[in-house]
């Protein structure tokens, strides 16, 4: 049987707006993925530890507070330090245009802005998660 895609939906930083994170978590579940939601106010260290423990294929980071430049590269770095080289990091939220290229240069696979459909996100994960046995 094909392994189901496992995704950690993470909400780093102090912000509590979790509407997006919860809608995405449910949409991914409805699309047949296994989803673990971290809950609010996770540090990059907590997120990386959860990703490793849950052996996920992708981490979806939800952030709108403006702290993405500090938090997202740190999450990527910590995942790589833990040997999770194939684990995708995707970001969703309010991210200024200028920051998108920089985040991608720092190892973020994709940035989804407001207005993105959940289907688009599901498709991206299906196409980009590394197949495992």
């Amino acid at each position: 049987m094909e392994r189901r895609i496992r995704v950690l939906v993470a909400k780093p930083g102090l912000d509590g707006h979790d509407r997006g994170a919860k809608v995405i978590a449910r949409a991914l579940r409805d699309a047949g993925m296994e989803v673990i939601y971290t809950g609010l106010r996770q540090t990059p260290e907590m997120i990386a530890a959860a990703a490793l423990q849950e052996d996920v294929d992708a981490v979806g980071v939800s952030i709108l507070s403006g702290a993405h430049n500090t938090l997202c590269p740190r999450i990527v770095e910590l995942l790589r330090e833990r040997g999770m080289d194939d684990c995708l990091v995707v970001v969703g939220g309010i991210i200024p245009k200028e920051d998108i290229a920089r985040l991608k240069g720092q190892g973020v696979s994709e940035v989804f802005l407001p207005g993105t459909s959940t289907e688009e996100i599901v498709n991206f994960l299906r196409e980009n998660v590394q197949p495992r046995t």
């Binding site: 930083g13 102090l14 912000d15 106010r41 540090t43 507070s65 403006g66 702290a67 430049n69 500090t70 938090l71």
Partner: peptide
Amino acid sequence: TLMGYDADSALSEGEVGKC
């Protein structure tokens, strides 16, 4: 400020004056 942390708290990193 909303969460009751000072600007120099480790948890405030990246968030001071943003929202």
